[in-house]
Design a protein around this nucleic acid. Structure first.
Length: 324
DNA sequence: GGCCAGGTTCGCT
DNA sequence: AGCGAACATGGC
């Protein structure tokens, strides 16, 4: 008999649970170790080598948010519950204060409509920096559809399986899992030799203790950049995305990103798409809240892609698959 | 079949 | 410093 533990969380308002949880799964039912459907966000946490399925739902409203969290498979240990509570809070960015950003954005012709449309969207964070780094490297250069396939394969192949109520869930792979998989193992997931090399290499460094990614959390931005860029396979684009999605910094801006530059051109109503340097220059006026700008622009983009997918599904009747 | 997609590295000027 | 090619794969 599985014991359940439940607890509640009170996010900093405004907090839109639906938007934030949907962003965390890229507006899909399930992505990586996360899922969101029927109003319930789920995630497998991997703590001290044990797996816990966490289910989160909203019991409040955007302006008076309140979350209920259920833990499956955990013994009723208060220290553990406290850790899980902390991780859930981190993952959904519930302690982020969007106020200063909204103040800046309200009067901005490009950002105004965006923050009104997505009011209460917080920035989801990956539970570990390792997960964020692997996740983002997997997305380098390729289309979002290909990234979805690679990421899903990685989690379902090297993550740990958890069955609850007849449903199958996966945790995100541990550094040691990916180190053990090695280049050969990763190559079977349709990764390029280069990408497989990057991920095997970083995983091995983390697993062996030579690289302590989690300690970067408290370090100044410049030092984080320096340390991460020195890793093979990590450039500025990757670091900036890590600032936004894994390090909880408010001013990350992946200015090299093609989709971001495209979205930027749209909200600015400019004809030509800005180059990386130009995009960085333009973004200065939103500093130090550019992580929000990035997230809100992508929310718009990802939501549109999701609608197009749903449309295709209705017309063709085809089912999305990762087994090509 | 060709070209591009949410980059990065390596090898040239 | 700056530029171009290679890298794997899916979709139009």
């Amino acid at each position: 008999m599985v014991k359940h533990v439940t607890f509640t969380l009170a996010p900093v308002p405004p907090f839109n649970f639906d938007c934030t949880a949907a962003f965390n799964t890229y507006f899909r039912d399930s992505y990586g170790a996360n899922s969101f459907n029927n109003g319930i966000a789920r995630r497998v946490f991997d703590l001290d080598g044990r797996l816990y399925l966490i289910s989160i739902c909203s019991r409040g409203k955007v302006e008076s948010p309140f979350l209920e969290v259920e833990v499956d498979g955990a013994p009723p240990d208060t220290a553990l519950i406290a850790r899980i509570s902390e991780q859930v809070a981190w993952m959904l960015g519930i302690n982020q204060d969007t106020g200063p950003f909204y103040q800046l954005a309200e009067g901005d012709p490009a950002m105004g409509p965006l923050v009104r449309a997505w009011r209460g969207l917080h920035i989801p964070q990956t539970p570990s920096i390792f997960e964020g780094l692997v996740w983002i490297i997997l997305g380098q250069q390729i289309s979002s559809q290909v990234a979805f396939i690679l990421r899903t394969l990685l989690v379902q192949t090297y993550g740990h399986r958890l069955e609850v109520n007849g449903e199958t869930y996966y945790s995100f792979p541990r550094p040691a899992d990916l180190a053990a998989a090695g280049v050969a193992g990763l190559r079977t997931l349709k990764l390029s030799a280069r990408k497989a090399q990057y991920i095997a290499d970083i995983s091995e460094q983390v697993a062996s203790g030579r690289l302590d990614l989690e300690s970067l959390r408290d370090q100044p931005g410049d030092e984080v950049i320096q340390r991460l860029i020195s890793l093979r396979g990590v450039g500025m684009w990757t670091v900036q995305w890590l600032f936004v999605r894994a390090l909880g910094r408010s001013d990350g801006f992946p200015y090299g990103d093609l989709a971001l530059r495209h979205a930027l051109a749209q909200v600015l109503k400019t004809v030509a798409q800005p180059g990386p340097d130009e995009a960085l220059e333009i973004s200065q006026r939103w500093s130090p809240y550019r992580s929000y700008v990035t997230t809100y622009l992508f929310a718009d983009l990802l939501c549109r892609l999701a609608r197009e997918r749903a449309q295709r599904l209705r017309t063709t009747g085809e089912v999305e698959s990762v087994t090509d």
